[in-house]
């Protein structure tokens, strides 16, 4: 029973991983472009309405992130990150305001809080 579950689970896992890899590598550009407009886009004006610790959005590199849930987890003091709520924070994110970049782990974490793209003409 356990052996069958192992074989089934492992086969299914690699099948899904390979399917995803294939889809990502062979996705026609047109299809991606068609899919993108479905997402809600946000303007900087909208982002600026979420500038509180209890409701904190940021625009970073053309994407909008709702970081409210993440704020208590952020390693730095609140005074470092809170002023960027409701702001275009790309430069601050890239340099940590001290010329140091965030880690790839932080980039990955950030992906989880993305709510949509920033409207191009609002940048």
């Amino acid at each position: 029973m356990m052996r069958k579950l192992f074989l089934l689970g492992t086969s299914l896992f690699w099948l899904l991983i390979l399917t995803l890899w294939f889809q990502a590598g062979h996705a026609p550009p047109a299809r991606t472009e068609v899919a993108m407009p479905v997402e809600t886009t946000y303007t900087l004006a909208e982002v600026s309405q979420h500038s509180l610790e209890s409701d904190c959005w940021m625009a970073i590199d053309g994407q909008v992130y709702d970081l409210t849930a993440y704020l208590p987890e952020h390693p730095s003091k609140p005074s470092i990150i809170l002023p960027w709520c409701g702001q275009e924070a790309s430069e601050a994110y890239r340099t940590k305001t001290k010329g140091r970049t965030h880690s790839p782990a932080a980039d990955q974490l950030l992906l989880g809080y993305r709510i949509g793209p920033l409207q191009k003409d609002s940048r």
Partner: peptide, 26 residues
């Protein structure tokens, strides 16, 4: 975790799983 980004794009979903894109954490 990848399924979360799949609705947006398979490319974004794969980027979340690809160690070459994400480095040592992955």
């Amino acid at each position: 975790l990848a399924a979360d980004n799949l609705a947006t794009s398979p490319v974004l979903a794969w980027a979340l799983l690809s160690p070459s894109a994400q480095g040592w954490p992955l």
